[in-house]
Write a protein that binds this DNA or RNA. Sequence first.
RNA 1: CGGGACGUGGCGCAGUUUGGUAGCGCACCAGACUGGGGGUCUGGGGGUCGCAGGUUCAAAUCCUGUCGUCCCGACCA
Length: 468
Amino acid sequence: MAVLTPRSEDFPRWYQDVIAKAELADNGPVRGSMVIRPYGYAIWERMQADVDARIKAAGAVNAYFPLFIPESYLRREAQHVEGFSPELAVVTHGGGKELEEPVVVRPTSETVIGEYMAKWTQSYRDLPLLLNQWANVVRWELRPRLFLRTSEFLWQEGHTAHADQADAAAYARRIALEVYQDFMVSTLALPVFVGRKTRKERFAGAINTLTCEGMMGDGKALQMATSHELGQNFARAFDIDYLGADGARHLAWTTSWGSSTRMVGGLIMAHGDDAGLRIPPRLAATQVVVLPVRDDEKVVAAAAQITAELKAAGVRASLDARPGLSFGRRVTDWELKGVPVRVEIGPRDLAAGNTTLARRDTGEKSTVPLSEAAGRVQALLDDVQDSLYQQALALRDSRTTDVTSLDEAVEAAATGFARLPWRLVGEDGEARLAAEALTVRCIQNPDGTLPDGTDDADDLVCLVARSY
RNA sequence: CGGGACGUGGCGCAGUUUGGUAGCGCACCAGACUGGGGGUCUGGGGGUCGCAGGUUCAAAUCCUGUCGUCCCGACCA
């Protein structure tokens, strides 16, 4: 009687089981809405704190813009409104009356922020203007999946204005690499392919979209974050211009970039196993749980002491001495929740002056003297962080196949990613792939780095996969 | 919007064919024994059977209508 549906049997079902059993989220009352439970929200808060610090390190500052946007704003940028219209939630009534102009619930904030950027940008001295906001957005979804695709989700959206295209392009690139990729690699222990989206897959209104694509446990791709060069499209629509040093008026160049609660879904699917979630130590709100094996005064006292020592050493540790729950039950609970390391202590350990350390990533256990426990735990946490990354990387490498034709790509993408020269695909190829439920996830340089600009140089490669 | 299924305690389901006054597993509550990988036992609480009509002595079950949900085909962090 397994706790969860095995991943190999039914991956989507496994995903839902993990969310329910680890108490991450529930469906909301309105179809497509999501209730994020405390344990799931704690994961998001840790992600937020880390991403927020990186955004600030990149020079952007936080602000807040309204949830309601005049419908007319959306219309000002043709591609933008075309891209978002089908998924807009529109408010037609307020205060008991029909509104003269409907307002939309923001699906993203380029338009309102553009309006204010235009006010705030007078001189070249006001640039670059680097803004970010943490907010909820609404995109009415027909096929909701908790964390991955819900009608309302939480995210961070950055919006910047620059004096010239090169500066805007460099910033969009910097965000993709230094904020998103580095966060995913260093904190989420998740390797990502960073590349450029095809013209077809671009954000509505962008001239270039950069993406971080992760591989999930079933070989499907998940777009984990995106960074867009918006060219002068929004600057033109919202009159974001400035007086240059040359005394002439110039149109600004803008960017936008976002990462969302979808990353929680990526975390689950990239690292989870048949026993539940596996949270990388650097992300985990609880890094270590200390479990007394029996409800015995001495054992519990020893467990409490280890917990205190760990905390004093800077480890995020907690004690689980809940009476009435068997040891096995508590172990299973924390495995489901993905806590990286367990410290177990029972009468036998105590008599020998030992404690048992168990790592979540491999299940491996070791016995160490009580006096050394705190120090060993620190080292173990570093090990788990590294090992989760290596496991995710090994999976991705083993399921990424270099191919030389579209037919081979279709075959390889049945189980993972196919990499092939972009010139073999092109827009016609994309249409053919779409018929097989496949998409070009991103375009890269042959060495896997992010291409500069948007030119279709001859040697570019692309990654093709099924995706969420 | 086109095709398929389903609505029965919190969750998952049986019961519907052949009407007889609602049951199982998990979860929950109380107590006891337990505790080195989802423990056992005893007792207990909780359901207008989606909704509205109708047929009948009697409806979860039959009839009509209605609402909702889920799955499959065009977009998306």
